[in-house]
C-alpha cells in the first residue's frame, strides 16, 4: 500500500490551476506590452492590451476569492511559519536544496495535513501571495483606473511609480513561477507533485 495522503481539497487545486493559467497569460501579454518592439513580435499590441486587462481583472477577482476561501477554511494558517526554530528549519531546508538533494537524501521535513509547506515554502508563499501579489494587483488596477493614481511624481507622470511597481512585482512573480515549477520536480518522482496538484493526493517519500 502506497504511503500517500489527501492533501489538497478541490477548491485549492481549482484556484491553483486557474491562477497559473492567468499568471502565464498575464506574463506573456505583459512582456509583449512592456518590451513592445517591431523586432519582438510576441502578441500583437492591441490584442495583448485587451487580454492583459481582462485576465488582470479576472486575477483580481480570483485573488479576492482566494483570500476569502483561506479565511473561511482556515487554510491561511498553512502560510504561517510556526516558531520556534523557523530560521534553523529554513537553513536545514536550504542545505537540502543545495547539497542533500544531489546526494539523494530524503526531504528534511515530512509533509502532513497539518503542515503542507516547509518553513522556507511558507515564508516564500506568504511573501508572494500576501505582499507581492497585492502590490501587483493594486498597481494593475491603478493602470486601469489612472484617475486614482498620483498626478505627478518628481516631475514625471504620476503613473511612473505605479508602472515600475507593477513591472517589478510582475518580474518577481515570473521568477517565482520559474522556481516554483522547477521545485515541483523535487517530489518522490519528477512528476509526482504535479500529479498531486491534479488529484490532491500527495506521495510521501
Amino acid at each position: 500500500m502506497s504511503d500517500r495522503i489527501y492533501l489538497l481539497p478541490l477548491w485549492i487545486r481549482l484556484w491553483h490551476w486557474t491562477n497559473a493559467l492567468l499568471i502565464i497569460t498575464l506574463a506573456v501579454t505583459g512582456i509583449s506590452l512592456h518590451f513592445a518592439d517591431p523586432k519582438l513580435p510576441l502578441v500583437e499590441f492591441a490584442l495583448a492590451a485587451r487580454i492583459h486587462d481582462i485576465a488582470g481583472l479576472a486575477l483580481v477577482a480570483l485573488y479576492v476569492l482566494f483570500v476569502i476561501a483561506n479565511i473561511v477554511t482556515g487554510n491561511w494558517w498553512q502560510y504561517v511559519p510556526k516558531p520556534p526554530g523557523v530560521l534553523e528549519r529554513c537553513v536545514k531546508q536550504g542545505r537540502w536544496y543545495m547539497v542533500g538533494i544531489f546526494k539523494g537524501e530524503p526531504h528534511p521535513y515530512r509533509v502532513s495535513e497539518e503542515a503542507n509547506f516547509n518553513a522556507m515554502q511558507a515564508i516564500a508563499y506568504w511573501v508572494i501571495m500576501y505582499v507581492v501579489m497585492p502590490v501587483m494587483l493594486i498597481t494593475g488596477l491603478l493602470f486601469l483606473y489612472p484617475e486614482f493614481a498620483p498626478d505627478r511624481f518628481f516631475g514625471f507622470d504620476g503613473l511612473l511609480p505605479v508602472a515600475i511597481l507593477h513591472y517589478l512585482t510582475g518580474a518577481v512573480i515570473i521568477m517565482f513561477m520559474i522556481a516554483h515549477i522547477y521545485l515541483g520536480t523535487t517530489g518522490k518522482t519528477a512528476t509526482s507533485m504535479f500529479k498531486t496538484m491534479f488529484t490532491g493526493w500527495y506521495e510521501q517519500h
Partner: peptide, 16 residues
C-alpha cells in the same frame, strides 16, 4: 514621461 507614461516608449534600459 514628463507628461505621460507610454508603455513601450518610456522605458528604463538599465532597469530592463
Amino acid at each position: 514621461l514628463s507628461s505621460s507614461y507610454v508603455i513601450g516608449a518610456t522605458r528604463h534600459p538599465l532597469l530592463d
